[in-house]
């Protein structure tokens, strides 16, 4: 175990959050079982009051869940100096492979948390709590996931041993190796560029159309395309975006861009990408849930706002991506 301040903060913070989450999941279970909107009994009233507690606790817990992914990545990145052979977060994650599962789980929970916050936000501002059951079912699904996250985190940090010789990102994210990271890296740059800009263009187009034309088809498409856009973008980061930042045709690491040497450009890059995708997904999810609401104008208002902000964040992501392609002297012509 390495007693690093960042690790202590993550562990203490996550355990507190987990306890609060388990508590609200328990209350959530009670609510799902006993909820009866028509009843006017004292018990139903007390349940309705508990929803206030749960939504405050959850907005708090999940906002920190969203923050914690960045703290985690930074901590892992900061730890790399203590491992022989590590040059960035990849090395620290390789030092104890549990770290990779933890990272994937954290990304998944990031999206789930953000969706929950969005749904809760809408639900609290409409009459009759139409999404109560859904919200609390989601909550009960999330509780074991967060518990798993804390468990993996403890296993990861407790078994980190500075004596381990780990492999760095140059070895993992190279075209020659086996496995997911290598196959992503060996994706040819030029077709990947077309793929990214086509997807992004399509996504922007659909967003604009859905802002103009009030058809539910386009909102479904926004939700769907944002997911596609996210996956393609992550592939593109490994395949060619990172190359432009490093100005090295062979270095595909998605973590090095988070370092100070590259002016922490990874944080706005990933931040805008994650934000844009989450907002797009929310639009789609709300459209699926739309029939549960009595009044759809309110929902539409939220969808339009989110689509708009998703558009802006997509724009920021693209600007950050295009900037080095246009202004640096590095080109990928020969590759």
């Amino acid at each position: 175990m390495i007693l690093h301040p960042g690790i202590i903060a993550l562990v203490i913070g996550s355990i507190i959050l987990l306890v609060m989450l388990l508590f609200s999941a328990f209350l959530g279970l009670l609510i799902i079982v006993r909820w009866d909107m028509e009843s006017s009994s004292a018990y139903q009233l007390s349940l309705e009051r508990k929803t206030y507690l749960i939504s405050s606790v959850m907005s708090f817990v999940l906002s920190f869940e969203v923050l914690s992914i960045f703290l985690f990545i930074y901590t892992v990145d900061d730890l790399h100096r203590q491992f022989v052979g590590a040059m960035c977060a990849t090395g620290s994650l390789n030092a104890n492979p549990v770290g990779w599962y933890l990272l994937y789980l954290k990304i998944f929970l990031f999206f789930l948390s953000a969706l929950w916050i969005g749904i809760n936000h809408v639900d609290q501002r409409t009459e009759g709590f139409p999404l109560v059951r859904l919200k609390y079912t989601l909550l009960i699904i999330m509780a074991p996931l967060v518990a798993a996250e804390v468990y993996l985190m403890l296993r990861y940090f407790l078994n980190l041993n500075p004596d381990i010789i780990t492999s760095c990102c140059g070895a993992l994210f190279s075209g020659e190796g086996q496995g997911l990271a290598s196959s992503l890296s060996s994706l040819p740059a030029r077709p990947m560029e077309y793929a990214l800009f086509l997807t992004a263009g399509l996504y922007i187009l659909i967003c604009i159309v859905s802002l103009r034309v009030r058809k539910s088809l386009f909102r479904y498409l926004v939700g769907l395309m944002s997911t596609v856009f996210f996956i393609v973008s992550i592939m593109a980061v490994v395949s060619f975006i990172s190359l432009y930042f490093y100005e090295l045709p062979t270095h595909h690491c998605p973590f090095d861009i988070l370092q100070g040497f590259y002016h922490y450009v990874g944080y706005p890059l990933y931040g805008s990408l994650f934000g844009a995708s989450v907002l797009g997904m929310l639009v789609g999810v709300l459209e699926i849930l739309g029939h549960r609401f009595r009044d759809n104008t309110e929902i539409e208002h939220y969808q339009r706002t989110w689509t708009f902000f998703s558009l802006i964040l997509t724009g920021i992501f693209l600007l950050i991506t295009i900037y080095p392609m246009v202004f640096s002297s590095f080109t990928l012509e020969g590759y």
Binding site: G6, I12, Y52, F60, L67
Partner: peptide, 26 residues
Amino acid sequence: YQVVVLMFLTVIPYMAATIFPSWKAA
């Protein structure tokens, strides 16, 4: 980073400790 670490160590426990009583009161 230091600011965020500090926040995780202090503000989270504080908020966690006050949420429940404030709901009770509300």
